[in-house]
């Protein structure tokens, strides 16, 4: 299998603070991968590096062989943990915006998802609650038929019902050749969909393993293992 994302000696400092240390990673195509770790473990930083929103201090990161740039951005659908959409636009205008810039964007799917999450496409973003904004962002990101989805805390800010819908969307969206990376600390909710997990602790990878292996070898759920590894 060809790797869709590779990192070699990847590191990131903010001033004197080291947020990511020497990350070596190779993610296979066609998997749903959990990027798990407590707050401030470097999950967001890693995903921002993969999107070229941050510049590495050391090492390199590649998406299907490309350094972050126009080529990689065509392939990656990224959901940041921030609300980043233009406040003055209506939801339907945002759908147009995405359709205009991304060739792999599926307008029908976007509208369908918005409808199921009961978002009125004519509403201006300014008037929406934070949770609804997050739903809009998720619909836009998941309506792309991308090769790699990088989802930063996709279920953090929404209610449990929407959470189920989102997970269902993620699974139903799953195609043989697309890869999904989900960063979260809400493991119990997401565990059942994951093929592979990466544990990040203080900017370092402490575990990278297929979920089946964890269950077989350790005889534990990912959630239990997580609680053990990150015990305070």
């Amino acid at each position: 299998m060809k790797a869709v994302l590779t990192a070699k000696g990847l590191g990131k400092d903010f001033g004197r603070k080291r947020v990511l240390k020497n990350i070596d990673l190779e993610l296979e195509k066609g998997k749903i991968i959990g990027l798990l770790g407590p707050n401030a473990s470097g999950k967001t930083t890693f995903l921002k590096l993969a999107n070229g929103l941050l510049t590495p201090t050391a090492g390199e990161i590649r998406i299907a062989g490309f350094a972050p740039g126009p080529e990689s951005k065509k392939m990656v659908s990224y959901l940041p943990e921030k609300t980043y959409l233009n406040e003055w636009m209506r939801t339907e205008q945002l759908v147009e915006f995405f359709a205009d810039f991304y060739e792999d964007f599926n307008v029908d799917r976007a509208h369908d998802m918005l409808k199921r999450l009961q978002v009125d496409p004519r509403d201006k973003l300014k008037t929406l609650s934070k949770g609804t904004k997050e739903k809009v962002q998720l619909c836009l990101v998941m309506a792309r038929e991308a090769e790699l989805y990088l989802l930063d805390e996709p279920i953090g800010g929404v209610d449990p019902a929407a959470r189920d819908f989102i997970l269902e969307t993620i699974i139903s969206n799953y195609r043989e050749d697309s890869t999904i990376v989900i960063s979260t600390h809400l493991i119990a909710d997401i565990e059942k969909v994951l093929d592979y997990v990466i544990f990040l602790k203080e900017g370092e990878i402490v575990l990278a393993s297929p979920v089946d292996e964890i269950r077989e070898k350790e005889g534990k759920s990912v959630d239990t293992l997580f609680r053990e590894v990150f015990k305070c």
Binding site: E71, Y78, P80, Y84, F101
Partner: peptide
């Protein structure tokens, strides 16, 4: 605001230079 703040997350993930 559009490039160097939150909205930059959108603008800099567009497939463009």
């Amino acid at each position: 605001k559009n490039l160097l703040s939150e909205e930059g997350y959108l603008m800099f993930t567009l497939p463009t230079q």
